[in-house]
Computed example of a mutant assay.
Amino acid sequence: MPPGTHRDWYSRDYLPHFDQPGLIQAITFRLADALPAEKLQRWALELAHETELAREVEKKRRMEAWIDAGHGACWLREPAIAQSVEDALLHFDSVRYRLLAWSIMPNHVHALIETREGWPLGSIVQSWKIFTAKEINAHLGRTGMVWQREYHDRYIRDAEHLANVTRYIEQNPVKAGLCSEARQWRWGSASRKQE
């Protein structure tokens, strides 16, 4: 497939992705140690007796609670590292995508973008992760994996969905107990909004 070609529905591992220009996409990617595979396997066993829908709902709830509790090294807590991730998100805003909202949490990143023709979603996320992994490893004086291989994306269906996802992204630091108001969180789009 030629570079810059959008792929509609596809999967790299176990997560399906949808890629079309002009879609608004909510994206989440996590540090490599934020959610261990063993934890996911244990939850799968615990929830095996549930219906598929109940399993998915409970798995999502558990994943959000685990991640928001700040497990793992939480390198994104360091201001210099959070700044490099924010700079990466903002770097190609209005060129390769339109960045609508974001929040850089201690162990994961949320971004809401509108994709553009010629810039497939996977290549956008890959560029963020490759660039920031080099920056993070250099800052920490280490080598090795920084981000989990996969990322989660969800296309926005309508205006109500857009409002809900924007609110979720910007309120995530409040929900995780990192601040009392979203605008207080330095590493998110809410801090840049006028009162």
Rank of each mutant, 00 (worst) to 15 (best):
T5G: 12
W9H: 08
Y10N: 07
R12D: 12
H17F: 12
G22N: 01
I24A: 04
A26S: 04
K39E: 14
L40F: 03
R42H: 11
R42W: 06
R42Q: 11
W43F: 11
W43G: 07
L47S: 01
T51S: 15
E56S: 15
K59V: 01
R61F: 04
M63N: 10
G72A: 07
A82T: 01
Q83P: 00
E86Q: 08
L89C: 02
L90Y: 03
F92N: 02
D93Q: 10
V95L: 12
R96T: 03
Y97P: 00
R98E: 01
S103M: 09
I104V: 15
I104S: 05
P106M: 09
P106I: 10
H110Q: 03
L112K: 05
G118H: 02
P120E: 04
P120M: 04
G122P: 02
S123I: 04
Q126M: 09
A133D: 02
E135F: 03
I136M: 02
N137L: 13
N137Q: 14
H139G: 04
G141E: 10
R142I: 08
R142M: 03
T143S: 15
V146N: 07
W147I: 15
H152D: 11
R157D: 04
R157L: 06
A163G: 04
N164S: 09
T166G: 06
R167M: 08
Q171I: 06
Q171H: 12
P173K: 04
G177W: 06
L178C: 05
L178T: 07
A182N: 01
R183Y: 06
R183Q: 03
Q184G: 07
W185V: 03
W187V: 00
G188M: 01
S189K: 05
R192A: 09
E195P: 13
